[in-house]
Amino acid sequence: MHRKKHRGRIQAQGGGLEASETWNQDGPLTKQEGRGLLARLKSKLTPEEREQRRKSFEDAERFIDGARGGLDAPQRRSFLSTQGKGLRIDIEIWGGTAFIALIILILVAIWLID
């Protein structure tokens, strides 16, 4: 796949599980897109795997929501289950910027057009 500027991955890991959602796009990943990837990842897991990582998903979503002005690569954050044992959600930013607010993206686009 052609490598674009803004790339990364959200993974559910630990306990033998390795499920992920990636992004690879020309524009920065918005918070909304990030939450969408997280939801898609959640939908791939069994009810038990989801329950084991309930707090991990909550923390990851809070992290995405709280990112001010976006986050630049290279970054890696792990949101561990309260059960420990390495059960977690990982967010990896490989290139560019992620979790920018949509309004900022629109303002930048308007500024570039002007």
């Binding site: 990112a67 001010r68 002005g69 986050l71 630049d72 290279p74 970054q75 890696r76």
Partner: peptide
């Protein structure tokens, strides 16, 4: 790892 936001936070 980068732990600073683009606006320096």
């Amino acid at each position: 790892y980068n732990t600073v936001s683009p606006d320096g936070e």
